[in-house]
Write a protein that binds this DNA or RNA. Structure first.
Lengths: 222, 222
DNA sequence: AAGTGGTCTAGACCACGGC
DNA sequence: CCGTGGTCTAGACCACTTG
């Protein structure tokens, strides 16, 4: 693994455990470079990752600081699996499982064709999974993916990690994602699988994820 | 302006005008470094920008290529104004105006409080603007922003660029944004202001934008 | 003036893909 | 094997904030 990613992982973990933020704002770049026995450029690449994740921000001439919502952001790392290597950390401390509730292959409807740029003859997977963290139901994940882009998806993969399969077995790379986050009331499925009441608030994340070739491959709602 | 941003702007402009993509995939990094009289590291920072924008992608050992949806992405640079300096280019070739349809200051409702992390006593701007490009109505923009984060917004600013005001006058920096893009049917406002029929499809972009301090400052739908 | 982040350089080595 | 992108270095100078 590249050094700058490992440093980012280490710092992210430290932030989530509140190892700084108490006393000083954040160690400066020269300090970090010494501490990790590396150059300042490499430290900056690490900080760029955390900055892109919204965990920290920097002001020229002043310093680097931890965002107020750092806690919120670290916590909301579901659905993306080991997208940028994030859950390698989470994986150490938490047990993540998936329960497959629905797995169909069918033709896409109009809005699915638009979202995934398909025609009506191109099959999609229609998947609903229950995500279980530390034996507690955590999230419901509705995914639609084109069969032609992600061939060979099966029950075995679904119980583990779709993203792991895409990146490790198919050797495809994730490009970008459009996300929308909102809060809503629980629906009947939420009540059934997430142990919550009919009016409990539920956090909803809708995203379209693209491969680095620009092909959209997932439209999901969590 | 930093050299790597200027190079990114130049390359983005070249891509949008189809100056490569015909013959060779994309000039390699050493070629670009020579062409712009700079180092490879700097070229890579430029490419990182275009890669984050989804315009290009790179494969180790193979080369760098232009995304298939590069055209779509370059085209869909509305709403974000000169966010990363993008519309400095568009500004040269197109005339962009804003017509203010609604401008109110009021208390936020429940969902607005959640989206912008406010309590019910903190005022928000409620703005609807019609965006006009080259004298043609182009988009309707519904924005909600907290008054306490963006003080002093007035009619004059609204007709120009809110993002320009935030970055140039208030000296604030944009952090990250969550976006959702979907297609929908035109509603009555769309018909009235965008010259379209009741069943015409409309592209909808919903986003929450954060300052680099992690404070959310805009919830908008375009 | 000192300390910080932002940028930039001119090289180096590695990993990977294609010939 | 060679060409490509990915990473990394050890310094340098600048821009900005703060005391």
């Amino acid at each position: 693994m590249a050094k700058y990613i490992e440093i980012a992982n280490q710092l992210r973990s430290d932030i989530s455990q509140h190892k700084f933020s108490q006393d000083q704002p954040f160690p400066d770049q020269l300090d970090l470079a010494n501490r990790f026995s590396t150059s300042r450029m490499t430290v900056q690449k690490s900080l760029n990752i955390l900055r892109a994740e919204g965990l920290i921000y920097s002001r020229q001439g002043s310093g680097t600081f931890i965002s107020k919502n750092a806690d919120l952001i670290v916590q909301s790392d579901f659905g993306v699996d080991q997208y940028v290597g994030t859950s390698t950390l989470l994986g150490d401390r938490h047990q993540i499982e998936s329960q497959v509730i629905k797995f169909e292959i069918r033709y896409p409807n109009d809005s699915e064709q638009i979202a995934l740029r398909l025609n009506d003859k191109e099959l999609i997977y229609d998947i609903i999974r229950q995500r279980v963290v530390d034996k507690e139901p955590y999230a419901l994940e509705y995914s639609k993916m084109p069969v032609k882009v992600i061939p060979g998806l099966d029950d075995k993969v679904l119980h583990a990690s779709i993203y792991g399969y895409i990146q490790n077995d198919l050797k495809l790379k994730i490009g970008s994602a459009f996300r929308k986050i909102s809060a809503d009331k629980a629906n009947s499925n939420d009540e059934k699988y997430l142990k919550c009441g009919p009016m409990d608030p539920v956090l909803e994340v809708t995203q379209t994820v693209f491969l680095n070739t620009g092909i959209p491959f997932e439209f999901s709602s969590t």
